[in-house]
Simulated assay, not measured.
Amino acid sequence: MMTTLNTRHLPLVLAGGTLCNRRLWQPTLDRLNVSAAICPELTADTSAEDASKRLLSELPTRFLLAGFSLGAIVALQMIADAPERIAGLALLSVNPLADLPENAALRREAVSAARQQGLTNWLSASLWPKYVAPSRTHDRELHDIICQMAEACGPETLATQTEIAISRRDNREALAALACPILIINGLHDPICTPHHHQLAAGSASQATSVTLPGAGHFTVLEAPDEVAPPLRQWIQECLDATE
C-alpha cells in the first residue's frame, strides 16, 4: 500500500485551468495519496493579480502550489507576490510569457462564440483538437469529462478567466528567484503551452525538475495521470523533507 504523504501542516494547493474544476485533479489525487489538498476556484477574478491577492488572503501561511495552464499563470503571479508563502511550486502545461496584445480581440471573440454556440459545441469544434495528443482525439470519455467541467463552470467563468489570460504578466524573474523545489511538466503534443514555452519556464529556474510526457497534449493531468503522479509525489516528498 502506498504511504500517505502527510501534507496536513503544508497543504497541497491545486489551481486548475480554464473551465476546469476539482474533477481535473481527481485522477492524479487518487494516485498521490496526500492527506490534505485544496482546489480553489478561479471563477470570479479578472486578472492574475486579483486571483493571487484573493488566494493569498484565504490560504494557509505556507503551502505547496501546483498550477495547470491558467492555474499556472496564477501560480506564477503568487510567487511574484509572496514567494515566502510557497514551500514548493509545480507548473503543468505552462506558458510563462505575457500575452500578445493582438490576442485580446481574438480571445474575446471566442467568448462571444462560446455563448452563441454553447460551451460544449464551441469547445468540441475549436479547442478539443488542441487539448489532447493526436492519439486521444477519439477518446469520448476524456472529451466528455472536459466538456462537463466546462458546462459546470459556465460562460461567465470563461469570460472572467479569459481576462486573466489577456492581462497576465511575464513572471520569469520571480520564478528564477524562487528558493524551493520546482517541478515543471508538459506534454510533447501541446500546441497551447508548447514545448518551447516549457523550455522557457524551465530555463528560468535552473533548480527545477523538468518532465516532458511523450504521449500527452495540453491536458496532461487528465490524459496521463499515471505519468503525472510519480514526479508530483516525488516533488511533494522533496518539499516536505526540505521543511523538516
Rank of each mutant, 00 (worst) to 15 (best):
residue 72 A to E: 06
residue 95 N to E: 09
residue 203 G to H: 07
residue 163 E to A: 07
residue 14 L to I: 08
residue 134 P to Y: 02
residue 29 L to G: 14
residue 130 K to Y: 03
residue 82 A to D: 14
residue 179 A to F: 01
residue 21 N to S: 14
residue 228 V to Q: 12
residue 216 A to E: 08
residue 73 I to Y: 11
residue 198 H to C: 12
residue 3 T to L: 07
residue 172 R to Q: 14
residue 236 I to E: 14
residue 107 R to L: 13
residue 199 Q to Y: 03
residue 60 P to K: 00
residue 237 Q to F: 06
residue 218 H to A: 09
residue 148 Q to S: 15
residue 143 H to I: 03
residue 200 L to P: 08
residue 143 H to F: 13
residue 157 T to W: 04
residue 240 L to M: 14
residue 33 N to R: 04
residue 112 S to A: 15
residue 165 A to T: 11
residue 84 E to S: 10
residue 123 L to V: 13
residue 233 R to P: 05
residue 121 N to T: 14
residue 36 A to D: 14
residue 63 F to S: 00
residue 2 M to C: 04
residue 83 P to F: 03
residue 48 A to F: 05
residue 106 L to C: 09
residue 10 L to P: 04
residue 76 L to G: 00
residue 131 Y to P: 00
residue 33 N to W: 02
residue 216 A to C: 14
residue 167 S to C: 09
residue 29 L to K: 04
residue 4 T to L: 09
residue 30 D to G: 09
residue 18 T to L: 15
residue 5 L to E: 12
residue 99 D to L: 09
residue 102 E to S: 13
residue 176 A to I: 03
residue 63 F to H: 12
residue 124 S to D: 13
residue 87 A to E: 12
residue 57 S to L: 10
residue 202 A to D: 02
residue 40 P to C: 11
residue 10 L to H: 13
residue 145 I to H: 03
residue 229 A to Y: 06
residue 238 E to F: 00
residue 133 A to S: 14
residue 29 L to Y: 10
residue 157 T to H: 01
residue 190 D to E: 05
residue 191 P to A: 07
residue 188 L to Q: 15
residue 237 Q to W: 06
residue 124 S to K: 08
residue 168 R to D: 07
residue 100 L to P: 05
residue 169 R to N: 11
residue 71 G to T: 05
residue 77 Q to R: 15
residue 6 N to G: 11
residue 199 Q to I: 07
residue 243 T to M: 08
